[in-house]
């Protein structure tokens, strides 16, 4: 690896006086391979060994399709709700001074810190027909727990910090000068917000949406208690994987997992593409 040549254009790494490159990179790559890459490769190989006909048969099973539709649909709705409220919360936290602002700021990260099973039983307790909110909703003829609505609620809980925490730093960095300029040029406040501020935070909002969505699609612990897990109705895809595993149907579990991974990566890929395209179009970094 060590080359005395001054031109290092073709070399693996640029020369440096700092030691420890081989040890650090070697350990990092070995650990990454052993813990993450090889196990994931096992999943891919297993999926490939199933054969296309059998793969499609399992993937298009009505129960599997219903679970995938619920997981992706509920994740999409929850991420959309989180975009609206997440941007609003970020805006309030960055722009306004009020008592308890720091407490509110700290609380936003609760879903990162609270174990999903704890959130799950708490949400189930709140929204179950005999829980405080569930009972109230019942009076109006609503059922929250054990329906897709319950799934969406749990996913809103889990995804909120992703949007707030990606939008917040970008909002903080906006120069107030450009808003002042817009106002001086005669733009109304609403026009300034929609045509000056929103385009600025748009990429961050999209990233937040993608992160919240990706997390929500695979979420398990906070959902299964409130969902009631009725097949074809409120059974999410990760739970169906667990059920297949309990039946020792490893092929079934592998197929659902691969479809989930492929769809999730495809969506992230599209998001990245849209974002790159937007950056080029708007010309901001």
């Amino acid at each position: 690896m060590a080359s005395s040549s001054h031109s290092h254009a073709g070399a693996f790494r640029e020369p440096s006086v700092i030691p420890g490159f081989g040890l650090a990179l070697g350990f990092a790559v070995s650990a990454l391979s052993l813990v993450v890459l090889i196990p994931l490769a096992a999943l891919v190989l297993r999926a490939l060994s199933i054969g296309p006909a059998e793969f499609i048969r399992i993937a298009t099973d009505a129960r599997v399709l219903a679970a995938l539709k619920l997981s992706f649909g509920a994740a999409l709705i929850a991420a959309a709700v989180n975009v609206v409220f997440g941007v609003l919360v970020a805006w309030v936290l960055v722009r306004y001074q009020f008592p308890g602002r720091r407490l509110l700021d700290a609380i936003v990260d609760l879903p990162f810190a609270l174990p999903t099973a704890v959130a799950g039983i708490a949400l189930a307790g709140i929204y179950a027909p005999n829980g405080p909110v569930g009972e109230l909703a019942g009076l109006f003829g609503f059922k929250v727990a054990f329906t897709p609505l319950g799934v969406v609620l749990a996913l809103i809980f889990i995804g909120l910090p992703f949007v707030v925490r990606t939008v917040q730093p970008v909002l903080e960095e906006i120069e107030r000068d450009i808003e002042e300029a817009a106002a001086l040029l005669g733009a109304s406040r609403l026009r300034t917000i929609f045509q000056v501020i929103l385009p600025h935070i748009y990429p961050a909002v999209l990233t937040g949406f993608a992160l919240a969505f990706a997390r929500a699609v695979g979420e398990y612990g906070s959902v299964i208690f409130i969902a009631g897990n009725i097949p074809m109705v409120s059974e999410i895809a990760p739970l169906l994987i667990v059920i297949k595993l309990e039946e020792f149907d490893y092929s079934g579990a592998t197929v659902i997992a691969s479809v989930m991974l492929a769809l999730a990566f495809a969506m992230l890929f599209v998001m990245n593409g849209v974002q790159a395209w937007q950056r080029k179009r708007l010309g901001n970094v």
Binding site: L32, V36, P39, A42, G218, L245, A253, A257
Partner: peptide, 24 residues
């Protein structure tokens, strides 16, 4: 590429993270 791969577990369902070890 290394940076992307390190972040990989964040975009994978916890259930799938368990599944890969079952398969192994």
């Amino acid at each position: 590429l290394l940076l992307t791969l390190i972040d990989l577990p964040f975009s994978i369902s916890p259930v799938i993270s368990g599944l890969v070890f079952i398969l192994l």
